[in-house]
């Protein structure tokens, strides 16, 4: 009885969220995977079990490989760019910039904006018109005499998705900066002093002392950015709409479900997105669980 009294109130307290998560997250996930393994290719048919047919067949579709490529380019540029820029900003802050609080607020502000609003603004900034018809950034380049920098932005067939990552970097690098800044502040001053006494240059202090100590922060940033990037939908739709030239799996999923009325295909794409995100998230969860247990 006393044992029950110890754990029951706690369990009752969390059970609503356990139920909600069980039904609306894991229940729906399971339902989605089941749907992905049927041949329910329109809304009317019942859909018989076909195993992994949809998962394999989708790789024959040119659009699917294109959208996966786009997602990879977008993720690499966005995650890499946001990490590098965020780290640089944090580094500058750390060096005791005057008015640090103001700058910190300015760099964090974009986080408060939704991806849709960001997309609408950057859609205009990244307009692909060049020469006389240039607007947005291309016009700016024109006025500064930097015409050679004008390009097609997200309409460029090869590097369009890299351009698409620019607004995302703009939006998220402030957040990465905040993470790193907190990390920098957590590195004990004694360690740095010891390194300096041993003859380290300032650069080496960061490279050999601070950065290795920041590995957990970097990892969290990587995971947060990575899963945002693989699920990217709102930003891309706001900038270019549902066009093939900037197609990513999440947009393809929407088109499959709502335009082509093919629930099984949409569910297959959704399943792949979940799998891709869990490749990022699951090792992190395992790692942090182990760390907690150790401490």
């Amino acid at each position: 009885m006393t044992r029950v009294r110890r754990w029951l109130p706690g369990l009752l307290l969390v059970s609503p969220s356990i139920v909600a998560i069980a039904v609306f997250v894991y229940g729906m996930l399971g339902w989605n995977f089941r749907l992905a393994m049927t041949d329910k290719h329109d809304e009317v048919s019942e859909g018989g079990f076909v195993g992994l047919e949809n998962f394999i067949g989708i790789w024959d579709q040119q659009r699917w490989s294109l959208s996966v490529n786009h997602a990879i380019v977008f993720t690499v540029v966005f995650v890499g760019g946001a990490l590098a820029l965020g780290w640089l900003l944090a580094f500058l802050m750390e060096k005791g910039l005057r008015g640090e609080g103001t700058f910190r607020a300015i760099y964090l502000f974009p986080m408060a904006i939704s991806f849709v609003a960001t997309g609408v603004v950057w859609r205009w900034l990244m307009n692909s018109g060049t020469g006389e018809r240039a607007v947005g950034l291309n016009r700016l380049f024109d006025n500064l005499g930097l015409e050679f920098l004008q390009w097609q932005w997200f309409r460029d067939p090869d590097w369009g998705m890299a351009a698409m990552a620019i607004p995302a970097i703009w939006q998220m690098s402030g957040y990465v900066m905040a993470l790193f800044l907190a990390g920098f502040r957590g590195v004990p001053e004694e360690l740095r002093e010891a390194a300096r006494v041993d003859g380290c240059t300032e650069w080496d202090v960061y490279r050999r002392i601070v950065l290795p100590l920041l590995r957990p922060v970097t990892l969290s940033a990587l995971i947060i950015l990575g899963h945002i990037s693989l699920k990217a939908f709102d930003l891309i739709v706001a900038v270019s709409g549902k066009q093939i030239i900037t197609d990513v799996p999440a947009v393809f999923m929407w088109v499959a479900v709502f335009d082509a009325h093919d629930p099984a295909k949409g569910a297959t794409i959704a399943a792949y997105i979940v799998i891709a995100v869990s490749i990022f998230v699951v090792p992190y969860l395992v790692w942090s669980l182990r760390k907690e247990r150790r401490s």
């Binding site: 329109d42 659009r63 066009q243 093939i244 030239i245 335009d259 082509a260 009325h261 093919d262």
Partner: peptide
Amino acid sequence: NDAWRTAINEAVGLFQQ
């Protein structure tokens, strides 16, 4: 129908590249 139209849009989008 919608499915066919989406497929045509897909083909034309890929063709533009």
